[in-house]
């Protein structure tokens, strides 16, 4: 097999031609609808808590708690991965996706124990989201402080 740079470029082109592509329109549509429905449900919950006499900030926190609880439960009983296969980004982007990443990592690490297993692995996927979420919010915070 010719492994020269030119042959590799040619190989890469052939691989691109012969590799089936994801159906982007279908995936985007499903993500949009499922993600949208999750947000609508969130709004419904928020209104429910506001009507129940909670303050605005408390209601928002309660919505997050309910979402995290549902996502963790669905992950634990093996339904979230099936849902994620269908919904794609729709179930990854909301806070449910964050909960799913932590719970799924924890389940797999259970065999390695509470400390070096679950404790260490829980943030293996969620960790980068937290690190770069906080870093970018600091950057935006600085800009806001000086520009305001």
């Amino acid at each position: 097999m010719d492994t020269s740079k030119k042959a590799k470029e040619e190989y890469s082109k052939i691989v691109d031609e012969l590799t089936p592509k994801s159906k982007i329109l279908k995936d985007v549509f499903r993500s949009f609808v499922s993600g949208g429905l999750i947000c609508v449900f969130g709004q419904f919950l928020k209104e429910f808590f506001l009507n129940g006499g909670f303050e605005k900030e408390e209601a928002a926190l309660l919505v997050n708690m309910v979402f995290i609880g549902i996502a963790a439960l669905l992950t634990g009983i093996g339904l979230y991965s099936k849902l994620g296969k269908f919904c794609g980004g729709g179930t990854i982007v909301p806070i449910t996706g964050f909960a799913n990443s932590m719970v799924s990592s924890s389940i797999e690490a259970k065999a390695e124990g509470w400390i070096l297993g679950i404790g260490a692995a829980m943030f293996s996927i969620a960790g980068p989201v937290i690190v770069y979420g906080i870093t970018s919010s600091m950057v935006v915070g600085f800009i806001y402080y000086f520009v305001k």
């Binding site: 994801s22 992950t75 979230y80 991965s81 994620g84 990854i92 799913n100 719970v103 799924s104 797999e108």
Partner: peptide
Amino acid sequence: FPLALGNQRPLS
């Protein structure tokens, strides 16, 4: 990735 992660497997 963990099995219970809700991601999509590519067609390849």
